[in-house]
């Protein structure tokens, strides 16, 4: 049998990857191409006709000030949230691998917020910000707490960031825990014999050896923050005065609430490109920094 012939290779490929390929094409590639086609129509999302309008949707996307504001807001939110999530997650991971008593219990505890869906989480925190904090602020007469943070423009953003950190830190912690565990005890011991302090061995030994954890965590948090929708919907719903509408929510509103499906789809495409560029760039840079012991 000629194992280098084209037909053999094809058969091999379809035997092992056929089902996955078909599924991938059906649920990812085809909808993507169809979505691309819809950006050239002025479809309202409902009607049978999909009139072809060329690049009009892209023109209105560039003219849609609210979209660019939402995108800018998403950038700010993502940068702050990504940094905080990873810092908190890293510290948590360090704490629960340092041998404290009951560390498995703590690991589970920090992970639990991630198991609660974003919608539910949003409603829980809305209650906390609107009622619990306010009641606390009033009874202890703490000025900063006596009015709801969700009522101000910057407060609403802050709330979104707090909730995101709370939600994702536990998940990212698990990845960092795996990273810490993968650093072999030998090198740490060798470092200690050479006179490293705890801090030094983390910075110079552990961190470089777990760069792949950072790459994964950053990728996951960046893409999730850019695409945030569920928490945005249930926690602020864009309020006050549409000042906390993130890019994904604006896209949804544009496509379904305002019935400009084509424009919404074009905006979604741009959001996708932004995400893809940021994500790929970050992975590329991160991979370069990886070392092996």
């Amino acid at each position: 049998m000629d194992t280098s012939s084209m037909s053999f290779k094809c058969r091999q490929f379809f035997m092992f990857a056929g089902i996955t390929t078909v599924t991938f094409v059906a649920v990812v590639i085809l909808p993507f191409v169809y979505g691309l086609y819809l950006t050239f129509t002025s479809w309202d999302g409902v009607s049978k006709q999909k009139p072809f309008v060329g690049l009009t949707n892209y023109a209105s996307t560039f003219a849609d000030a609210a979209y660019w504001q939402a995108l800018g807001r998403t950038f700010i939110y993502s940068i702050i949230a990504v940094v905080l999530v990873n810092v908190v997650a890293f510290i948590l991971a360090f704490l629960v691998t340092s041998g404290v008593k009951g560390q498995n219990f703590f690991r589970a505890g920090f992970f639990i917020p991630n198991l609660i869906g974003g919608i539910v989480l949003g409603y829980i925190w809305k209650f906390v910000f609107n009622r619990a904090f306010v009641a606390l602020g009033e009874s202890l007469s703490i000025g900063a707490l006596s009015t709801s943070w969700l009522a101000t423009t910057s407060g609403a953003m802050l709330c979104l960031i707090i909730v995101s950190v709370w939600q994702y830190a536990g998940y990212m912690m698990l990845i960092y825990v795996a990273g810490f565990m993968s650093v072999s005890a030998d090198v740490l011991e060798a470092a200690r014999i050479d006179g490293c302090t705890n801090m030094q061995s983390i910075i110079h030994i552990s961190v470089p050896l777990m760069v792949s954890s950072f790459v994964q965590c950053l990728f996951l948090t960046i893409t999730r923050c850019f695409m945030v929708y569920d928490v945005n919907l249930s926690l602020t719903n864009g309020e006050p005065f549409n000042s906390s509408v993130m890019a994904a929510m604006h896209v949804y509103n544009q496509a379904f609430t305002y019935k400009n499906y084509g424009t919404g789809q074009a905006e979604a495409l741009i959001l996708f490109i932004v995400c893809a560029v940021v994500g790929v760039l970050q992975v590329y840079i991160g991979k370069k920094a990886e070392v092996s012991a």
């Binding site: 009522a151 309020e239 006050p240 005065f241 549409n242 509103n253 609430t257 305002y258």
Partner: peptide
Amino acid sequence: LPDDHYSINGASFQKYLA
């Protein structure tokens, strides 16, 4: 009323309320 009327003007009205 246009589909986006309530959302955009509602937001303006919220500003007035605040």
